[in-house]
Nucleic acid binder design. Structure first.
Lengths: 248, 248
DNA sequence: GCGAACATACCAACCGGTCGGTATGCGTCA
DNA sequence: TGACGCATACCGACCGGTTGGTATGTTCGC
């Protein structure tokens, strides 16, 4: 089975320089940062981060292992040292997506609001505020990947689904507190509202891609805010506009 | 430039039989109907319909021209006779998606309601009722394709975007009439509500894929209905539940 | 000196796309 | 009536390049 092999000595530096020049020719190169020299041991994280960026822009199937390697200056051998298959990378990338986004949201200022409803409105305002730059910069890795892989790869589907659902579960906590404090005009559950919130955001990403503009996402968030306003019977003069008290 | 060629006589029947046997080995074959013998002239439509089915299940990039040809019993030569490129097929498939779905919705019973608001609630009930079977059977070709191609192919992005936006424009007409008849509790526009409706549906598809179940889509539609209920101050005892009068 | 982290070369299958050719139907004019 | 020209639909071998994946080294820190 093994064919004839040559043993031509080459240095790592040669490869790295080649990687950079190849990347300049790459169709996504202009916006991708040059693969700055990594320290040994970085390959795995570099590949995952490149996957988060490239898959959000091109989709899962259109993003090849070779392209990932080129973008990071990692060789194919190294790729398969860290990941058993492309699917395994997908599962790991979904986990990494949660790993990256969770602290990002956890560290945001809206958590300081005392009233859980204010935190929810703050969350929505925050999600609107981060919708900037090119569409692929603020859309969701899990949502994008799900669309393509839900029927072809159960492990990836499960991992991406969990990423979204875990995030929803965090938002659900604030809804739970809000429901304990405020009585909604119609019967709702915390989990239901949290899932619906993610639904609106994911749909906003799709419509933003449809229009080629972030506007539909911002409008969707505004409608969701109005829904919560009516549900919880808050004054139309937005609650977070009248300087709500913050904690800690 | 032209390489050596052989002139081996083959019959169309040979090819068709080969197509069927190949398809039995295909990973999506079990659920795909066998490529029943087409009449001459059918190739283009057959390819477009196969694209709508396969792309919704596998995504755009994962669906190859060869696979489309296998599924339909069409040869590659015929494919490129009808479409200049894979991208051209994508644009045509988006148009076909509208061509297929538009009369489907136009023919639905909810249009008989006299009150435009009843038509809107009927539309939502209809969308919930058709969410049956495997997820790829009720999700949107345009939305799925958009996620992957919005940055790589402007023609496909534009075509898929228009498909969704044109459908929203039809729903917007009922919202326009509803706003003329009923005064909303908060300031909204017909176009804004129609776009938001599509946002919720598209997001519902993503969340359905995330959970591997249609439930999030149905819940999202229910929340949207509640939003409209509060906005237009309709009795919580759903308007289409108290037998509204119909027209024509 | 040993295992983890890489590097390099290679593979079969498949990718989108090309191209010379064939099959068939239709209008037209002798 | 029929044969001629021509357009449309279709055929399938072939192309260069890419795909995910493998096999076999080499390097390096402990």
């Amino acid at each position: 089975m093994p064919a004839t092999r040559r043993a031509k000595p080459t240095t790592p530096a040669t490869r790295r320089r080649a990687a950079v020049s190849r990347e300049a020719l790459d169709d996504v190169a202009p916006s991708t940062p040059p693969p700055r020299p990594r320290r040994k041991g970085d390959a795995r994280e570099a590949l995952l981060d490149a996957a988060l960026t490239l898959v959000r822009k091109q989709g899962w199937a259109a993003t090849s292992i070779d392209q990932l390697c080129r973008a990071t200056g990692v060789t194919k051998g190294a790729f398969f040292h860290h990941f058993a298959s492309k699917d395994a990378l997908g599962v790991a990338a979904a986990a990494r997506w949660t790993e990256v986004t969770a602290p990002f949201f956890a560290g945001a200022a809206y958590h300081r609001h005392v009233d859980p409803l204010d935190r929810i409105f703050g969350y929505l305002a925050f999600r609107a505020s981060i919708a900037e730059g090119p569409i692929e910069a603020f859309t969701c890795f899990a949502g994008t990947t799900l669309q393509e892989t839900f029927a072809s790869s159960e492990p990836i589907r499960e991992a991406c689904g969990r990423s979204i659902l875990d995030h929803a579960a965090i938002v659900a906590e604030d809804f739970r507190e809000a429901l304990a404090l405020h009585r909604p005009a119609l019967p709702v559950t915390a989990e239901g509202l949290a899932t619906y919130t993610q639904t609106v955001l994911q749909g906003g990403f799709v419509l933003a891609k449809a229009k080629g503009d972030r506007a539909p996402l911002l409008e969707a968030i505004a409608h969701l805010r109005q829904y919560l306003t009516l549900l919880f019977d808050v004054r139309p003069s937005a609650p977070h506009a009248r300087r709500p008290k913050t904690r800690a």
